[in-house]
């Protein structure tokens, strides 16, 4: 009985080794490998190809429309005379103000969550909700800004309201990326600092923050380049499409590039859609430039610090 069983087992093992040999000779797995390689390549190129076609189309339509006048002219009812001066100055204002508001708050919150917060139920609830906030649609932030800042606090349809609203919008992203940057600083560095008698704050301020600064700034710039493109929340808080002057204080009403683009696109005349395309080129240049700075910072940072 036992003999029979073991003989059966031997036969089975023999059959298995024959089968394994056949498989290793078969081309199926090799082909599978190749197929996936090219499929992956196709998927990668797809996104870039669409963007290239889009950019090419933009330049063909509006490349000649961009000149000094387009950048320095005030908006106008006549397409040929209209410029984006107020729009890009507004965008610049919004960028600077949003940075000033969101950066310190976001970094402080990130440092608190990563370095000070003890692990308990309340803290995990806090963390999950911050991650959730990053997914809230931007129009909801617009409505919040309208009610809280424009009406309740009374900042009206001003640059300040817009910047505060966008700051809220990008805060979760900054908090999360700050935490990620702090996490890359090894624990041994903190230990070394504590062992010399440094307090927690001294350790964070002198060692942890400087070592993670480029990571934090990278996250900040990526968050801002998202804010630059936001339209919906600013429309909700009352940014105007037609602002015949350049804002000179944070309480002035304003427009930004995406709103200007939206406004021109919704007009029936073809000349205005050419204007819109030209403005898109300017807007894209700004975001590409910001992403470029982020990539540069990350690259330099990786080269400088090897833990």
């Amino acid at each position: 009985m036992i003999n029979e069983k073991s003989q059966k087992s031997i036969r089975r093992q023999k059959a298995l080794s024959e089968r394994l040999q056949k498989i290793s000779k078969s081309k199926f797995y090799l082909i599978q490998d190749e197929v996936f390689k090219y499929f992956g390549l196709f998927c990668t190129i797809l996104g870039i190809a669409v963007l290239i076609v889009f950019l090419f189309n933009l330049f063909v339509t509006a490349g000649s429309r961009i000149d000094w006048g387009f950048l320095t002219n005030l908006p106008s009812r006549r397409a040929a005379k209209a410029g984006i001066y107020t729009a890009w100055v507004g965008t610049l204002w919004i960028l600077v103000l949003t940075t000033i508001i969101a950066l310190p708050i976001g970094i402080a919150a990130g440092v608190y969550l990563e370095e000070y917060n003890k692990k308990n139920r309340f803290s995990s609830l806090l963390e999950v909700n911050i991650a959730n906030l990053a997914g809230v649609p931007s129009i909801v932030y617009g409505l919040l800004g309208l009610e809280l800042f424009a009406r309740f606090i009374g900042t009206g349809e001003s640059l300040l309201t817009g910047a505060l609203t966008l700051a809220l919008l990008i805060l979760p992203v900054i908090i999360v990326s700050t935490r990620e940057a702090l996490k890359t600083v090894p624990y041994t560095i903190r230990e070394a600092s504590y062992a010399l008698g440094a307090t927690k704050w001294q350790t964070i301020w002198n060692q942890v923050l400087p070592a993670s600064l480029s990571g934090i700034f990278t996250g900040m710039i990526l968050a801002l380049s998202r804010a630059v493109g936001e339209t919906a929340p600013l429309i909700v808080i009352g940014a105007l499409a037609f602002v015949p002057f350049v804002p000179t204080s944070v309480f002035d009403s304003f427009t930004v590039l995406p709103i200007q683009i939206f406004n021109w696109v919704s007009r029936p005349q073809k000349e205005f859609s050419v204007n819109a395309a030209a403005a898109i080129i300017v807007l894209l240049s700004i975001t590409f430039m910001m992403n470029g700075i982020a990539v540069y910072l990350r690259h330099r940072w990786q080269k400088k610090i090897k833990w």
Binding site: P186, T188, I189, E191, A192, S193, Y194, A195, L196, G197, A198, T199, Q202, N206, Q207, P210, A211, K304, I305
Partner: peptide
Amino acid sequence: LRKTIGMVFQKPNPFPKTIYENVAYGLKVN
């Protein structure tokens, strides 16, 4: 207390700063 008791760790863990700043750090935080 930690100031009066120095510690050296298993893996060398200098701060990502200059040689001078590494040695000076303990004095500065104190």
